[in-house]
Design a protein around this nucleic acid. Structure first.
Lengths: 208, 208
DNA sequence: AGTATTATAGACCAAGTGGTACATAATGTC
DNA sequence: GACATTATGTACCACTTGGTCTATAATACT
């Protein structure tokens, strides 16, 4: 006898009873995440999702329960990926370079995908307020998680002497994140390269 | 004989032929603008608009042609109001204080309306990309108009000695606007008062 | 082999979307 | 007063939305 295990991925598939799933759950989830990321929550219809996830409606509702719940899991996935990204980078190049690399990465992604992707949280955050209170509070929470991660990175950089300790780490992290968020909006609004370059410069100054 | 004048407001109503309009066009437009502002473009349905504008569908389409065109006019109105606001303020308290007042005004409005209003351009900008290319380019354009206005204010402040001339006015304006945009996002994401206060402080430093 | 269990395919549904058609009402012109 | 002109009210339309229902297929357990 063994305990029933929630089958989350093809890699660790443990055969449960009944007809087996014909698709990889995390794979479908990842596809959904990318689609949400590019189009926002409301601009993503169920049919859009079914298409990119390569599943049919019945499988969708059997597995993910609803569009809202799927999105919630996509946010989790997004954050997991982001945190992994930052952690790996931190080990490789240290905290300050990680923050700078994130900046470059964000900009590159924005420009590469026709100024359309941006940050999942920012993009979908605005449309959720009032309309989907549960998603809204969730997004706020994830936002704060990012803030504390940044704060930790700054503190670490300060201990390493990479960043001056004249200001509190949380303050520096707040300014950094705010400028980065502004940058997403600014680039999406069609900023010139000159302006973008200077804003990156201002970000560097914040991390001095 | 007189020329046919487009009847834009009750105040300068010139009786044309046919049944007269039973509503004030700019009044209805203003109501629509506020609704869009609070709810975004897609989250505003035609029925929502008809309700706040106090008109029926037929009148709506006869006067405003479509939802998209109405929104376009709302953006114009929004900008007109904003520019008036800045110009008046500039005459009263000078350029630097105007920029600082705008900051305070933005924050106050954000907090007052349950962190939901924000900047019309930012709020609706994101959802328009790709989906409504015409609106999208329009928003980008308006964005740049704001940028040049800010630039002008900074330049004026520099000439008055209110702001140091070590950096180019457009650079300072860019940083100011970027931080302000970030602030809108940050507050909507549920920032603490402490963080907000420091971001305001950073805005002041930009304008030193 | 039979049964319980889970997954899939696809028809179906009520509600909401932006937009149109058409008959009627109110005005100026002649 | 007849007519052209403009505005209004309302029924209607095709389409999309997120979500459910039901019949059937595929597996494990006994």
């Amino acid at each position: 006898m063994y305990h029933l295990v929630y089958n989350t991925s093809m890699t660790n598939k443990i055969q449960t009873r009944g007809r087996p799933k014909a698709f990889d759950e995390t794979e479908a989830l990842t596809s959904a995440m990318h689609y949400f990321w590019e189009h926002g929550y409301d601009n993503t219809s169920l049919d859009n999702l079914l298409e990119v996830m390569h599943i049919k409606k019945s499988s969708f509702y059997a597995t993910f329960k609803s569009k809202e719940e799927l999105f919630s899991r996509c946010i989790d996935l997004y954050q997991e990926h982001s945190l992994d990204f930052l952690q790996t980078l931190n080990k490789e190049v240290g905290p300050k370079q990680t923050l700078l690399a994130l900046t470059a990465h964000t900009i590159q992604e924005l420009e590469e995908f026709g100024k359309v992707k941006g940050c999942l949280l920012i993009n979908s955050g605005q449309e959720c307020y009032n309309k989907y209170p549960q998603l809204s509070t969730k997004i706020t929470h994830e936002f704060n998680t990012f803030r504390s991660i940044f704060s930790k990175l700054v503190k670490e950089a300060q201990q390493l002497g990479e960043i001056k300790s004249t200001k509190d780490a949380s303050i520096i992290a707040g300014r950094y994140m705010n400028t980065l968020n502004g940058l997403v909006v600014t680039i999406q609004a069609g900023a010139t390269q000159e302006l973008i370059d200077d804003l990156v410069e201002s970000l560097k100054e914040i991390l001095e």
